[in-house]
Design a protein around this nucleic acid. Structure first.
Lengths: 157, 157
DNA sequence: AGTGAAACGACCGTAGA
DNA sequence: TCTACGGTCGTTTCACT
């Protein structure tokens, strides 16, 4: 392999970018259909897609909608920590209700997104699962009122 | 149609949940393969998947990795607003570099995630595109240091 | 990296329990 | 909502460039 780490955006030619765009619209679009759109054979498209998947540039997955699945309460929780951050992050990652964990620089040390069934469920997670973690000194909760935009299409369009 | 709004989680039977799980692992897994796993015909799986897609419970898409695409700077920006929130949200949604916009209750009114190429790029967005929007009174930026967990699999497992 | 061709498997529409 | 089935189309492998 030529590169271990990140692929500069300009290493992707227009053909690969178009392929990604097509799959962002419909992850099951056939290689043959995409091939017609980009002027390449089906096999060529398939090889490019496989590379994009193997290199981690892209993944093709089902994304579910929590609102439609009976998990209507979402919140972002900012967390302040004393001591090392990674052990706290690890414990947060383990919770199913926590779908997003990021270590940040700023007034918080960690941001986590929580998805749950009800206010009681959220309170339980916050109070008994987050605030009891060793090193957590403070939390601040931002209840979601309206999710306005959520894009999975970084950097292409 | 029997229901207009959200589908309770328990309205999805175990078969549909398993189908979703399979597609969360690989969005291109064939209906026939999934059918073998759940003990259903290919056509039955296809019909269920179509329903899940049409009803908005699930989508199958390519998800790209910003780090691998030359967009290594990410930040969450908390925004305080005076006056109505929706017009501000709308303007934020229009920016390509903003991939996530949510109206929240708490110390901020809006949370937006920004994906960009460099610190200069981030500064430009923050200073000239976010802080110039009418009604924005304050922002607070949380630079991403390490994205630790990001799940698209809400509510099933 | 790409093409083309042949065998195979998946997908789609339709009919019917 | 599911199965069954036939026609069509997509995918896979391989030899070649």
């Amino acid at each position: 392999m030529s590169k271990r780490n990140s692929v500069a955006a300009d290493e992707l030619d227009d053909v690969s970018k178009t392929i990604i765009e097509q799959l962002q619209q419909d992850g099951r679009r056939s290689y043959a259909t995409i091939g017609r759109a980009v002027g390449l054979s089906e096999a060529a498209v398939r090889q490019r897609v496989q590379k994009l998947l193997e290199s981690g540039v892209m993944q093709i997955v089902a994304v579910t909608n929590p609102l439609e699945l009976g998990f209507p309460r979402q919140a972002m929780v900012g967390i302040k920590v004393e001591g090392p951050l990674e052990p706290v992050a690890e414990q947060l990652e383990a919770y199913d209700e926590v779908d997003y964990v990021v270590i940040v620089a700023g007034a918080f040390d960690l941001l986590v997104e929580v998805v749950c069934e009800s206010d009681e469920h959220l309170l339980d997670i916050l109070s008994h699962r987050i605030r009891t973690i060793d090193g957590v000194t403070a939390t601040e909760t931002f209840m979601y009122l309206s999710l306005r935009k959520q894009t999975y299409s970084w950097g292409v369009r």
